[in-house]
Simulated scan of single mutants.
Amino acid sequence: MTLSNFILPSYLVDTPYDLYNQKKKSILLPGKLNKNDCADELTIEDDGLKIFYNVQGHRSWYIAAAVRTDFPIPVEAGLFYFEVYIINQGLDGLIGIGMSEPNVNLNGQPGWNERSYGYHGDDGLKFISNGHRGYDYGPLYTTDDTIGCCVNFFDNTCFYTKNGISLGMAFDDISGGELYPSFGMRNPKACIEVNFGQRPFVFDIDQYAKRIFLNAKEKNEWAKLSEIYKLSKSAIEQ
Rank of each mutant, 00 (worst) to 15 (best):
E83F: 11
G164P: 07
I174N: 04
F183S: 02
C149E: 01
K162A: 00
F154S: 03
D123G: 04
Y119I: 06
G93D: 11
G138Q: 08
I97E: 02
L91A: 08
L167E: 10
N163I: 03
F71C: 11
F82C: 09
Y119R: 08
V75N: 06
F171Q: 10
G124C: 10
E101Q: 15
V194S: 01
A77Y: 05
E101Y: 01
D92E: 13
Y117R: 06
Y160I: 08
S129V: 01
D122Y: 15
D155M: 02
D70Q: 10
P72Q: 11
R133C: 09
D136A: 14
Q198Y: 12
T161P: 11
F127K: 02
H132Y: 05
E193I: 14
L106H: 04
K189N: 14
G90Y: 02
G111P: 03
P181Y: 00
N105Y: 06
T143N: 09
Y135P: 00
S129H: 06
H120T: 05
I95P: 09
D136I: 14
K189G: 00
N163P: 03
V104R: 04
K162L: 05
S129W: 03
N107G: 01
C191E: 15
D123V: 08
G108A: 15
I147D: 05
F154A: 01
R133L: 13
D173I: 14
P74F: 10
L179S: 00
S116T: 03
